[in-house]
């Protein structure tokens, strides 16, 4: 399974990559914001996107909307891992078609639970 991890902080990308690797995801690529991520998604056969919300350039929520609006990408599950914690934003993400929402700071166990839930639902 090919995964794209999108975050403007390289340390957070590294943490998420390590956690995903522990959970058995070995094919992981990185992007530092939505506008870098979108062409990568369009060019490669990604199966899953983990993205931050607040990034310079294109924000995670806008990346999510762009993925859902693109017929060739709209099937890809998207997990938001973000410090954004306003109820209105969580509703916004749900309406935009997010598959999971994790608030930072988060734990490895939370990530595992959400991933299991996302893939159980898709199966």
């Amino acid at each position: 399974m090919k995964v794209l991890v999108v975050d403007d902080f390289s340390t957070m990308r590294r943490i998420v990559k390590n956690l995903l690797r522990d959970l058995g995801f070995t094919n992981i690529q990185e992007a530092d914001d939505g506008s870098t991520a979108l062409p990568m998604l369009q060019g490669g056969d990604f199966d899953f996107v983990v993205t931050d919300w607040n990034m310079p350039g294109m924000q995670g929520i806008d990346l999510l909307k762009a993925i859902r609006a693109d017929a060739s990408l709209s099937h890809i599950p998207v997990l938001l891992i973000t410090a954004e914690a306003k109820k209105e934003q969580i509703v916004m993400a749900a309406q935009a078609g997010v598959n999971g929402y994790i608030v930072k700071p988060f734990t490895a166990a939370t990530l595992k639970t959400k991933l299991d839930k996302i893939f159980a639902r898709l199966a």
């Binding site: 919300w53 924000q59 410090a83 954004e84 914690a85 306003k86 969580i90």
Partner: peptide, 22 residues
Amino acid sequence: GENLVEGPIVNTENRDDVVEDQ
């Protein structure tokens, strides 16, 4: 900011428009 972006909320207990945890 755009899309209500605010970053980490440090005083969640004083606000009712934010979630406190997962």
